[in-house]
Amino acid sequence: MRKELKISAIRNGTVIDHITSGMALKVLHILGLDEDPPTSTVSVIMHVPSRVHSFKDIVKIEDRELKKQELNRIALLSPHATINIIRDGEVAEKHHVRPPREVVDLASCENPNCITNSREPVSTRFKVIRKEPMVLKCVYCGREQDVCVERL
């Protein structure tokens, strides 16, 4: 049975479902989908009632199948998100996001005295040392820290 779609169905593309409520715009940001000029048509649905968790967000991207590698970044924000690849209007593939082992050039380090927070030409790099709740360890200063959405 075809379930009710809150926005029009897409023919080809990617649906990111079960995003932690309120995180959809951050998800767009870490996927680089909020860039100008735009590259794809994107629909964002927020605060959708959900059976599993009480509310969720959904993001639909037209005519683009996102790579697994980039999608795994979403796990930082939303560990239970699912990735649905839509082909010919049907769900062709479904994946659960998996936290990456390293987070490069994405989050900033919470230690204000870390070398990555100075003017040096160096990207941030963290090892994921725990998955749930996620704990990151800065490769440079060694500080262990939670994922802070404000710093993503």
Partner: peptide
Amino acid sequence: RHDREGAARMAAE
């Protein structure tokens, strides 16, 4: 010897 944490790791890179 540097005043910022992680300076040596970066320098080594």
